[in-house]
Write a protein that binds this DNA or RNA. Structure first.
Lengths: 151, 151
DNA sequence: GTCTTTGCAAAACGTTTGCATGTTC
DNA sequence: GAACATGCAAACGTTTTGCAAAGAC
């Protein structure tokens, strides 16, 4: 098992202090995802990393993605495609959501402005009605995008 | 391919008129899901149907689930478990959402009242800001449920 | 030197498909 | 009897795992 010390460690301390090692694969994967706008699948990440680290294996990509997800550095996404996608968590768009076009499959990021009251209201209502502590609210809007509406 | 006539047919006409046949498997599956509160996986459905139709195969379950999803009779759900879940679409809770407990995995249905303005506002804002036609809005709240908060 | 991480190949998992057989209309 | 639906087994694509070798500290 990879996470010997639990997710809390990396968040409070550093990579080293948690018994985790800085390796080429991990650094390259973080670099790649932090510089990527879109949402990549594990295999797309694998092939992109191959350009930098030709010897890398797919298993390492999966293990690293799992690790970084646990650490809260990246986010695993599911758009009902039968495979996962991953994205780097940027501070400024921590709680953003997705619009998915049913026609062309395009995925659009939606970052509500910090003070968008509607989502706070919704969260509060859920917490009160169900006595449920909401940690993350995920919203997907499935529909038809601008370009596909025209054609 | 199962859907020779497209989803539009069943919605406008009947089962028969669309060249679809009423079979034991389809009737049993609709009956099962319409009487089930929770969200079942394909395999759970398979084993429950086995009690009624011992000869049924898993492939038929998958094919029927796909068919009924296309027809808009049931809904396919994804809670990031690596497998799909299915639920019957009840008229009175057409656009309901889900609260998922990260601790015990329990899934709670959340049906906002018809006139809940917050969701209409959100939908309108998305449609205006992105020129995107929203067909369905899916919301998942991941967090900790009542029972798990106490223990 | 010790413990962690890796690559490889094989396995596991949920799901889909080809095809001969069975069912429905 | 013609068209559709089924069961079975095999195939599929994604993800996980066991293990020996390589790498980080």
């Amino acid at each position: 098992m990879i996470m010997r010390h639990g997710g809390w460690c990396w968040k409070k301390h550093g990579f080293k202090e948690c018994g985790l090692r800085k390796t080429q694969a991990r650094e390259a994967l973080i670099k790649l995802l932090s510089q990527t706008e879109g949402h990549l699948t594990a295999e797309e990440i694998f092939w992109k990393l191959k350009e930098v680290l030709p010897g890398i294996g797919l298993a390492t990509v999966y293990r690293t993605l799992e690790l970084l997800t646990q650490l809260g550095i990246i986010k695993k996404l599911d758009f009902q495609e039968g495979k996962a996608r991953f994205e780097f968590i940027k501070q400024e768009e921590r709680d953003h959501h997705h619009l998915i076009c049913k026609v062309c499959g395009k995925i659009i990021n939606y970052t509500p402005s910090e003070e968008y009251q509607v989502l706070k209201d919704l969260t509060e209502k859920i917490e009160k009605d169900f006595d449920f502590k909401v940690e993350t609210l995920e919203i997907q809007a499935y529909g038809v995008c601008k370009d596909c509406k025209r054609s």
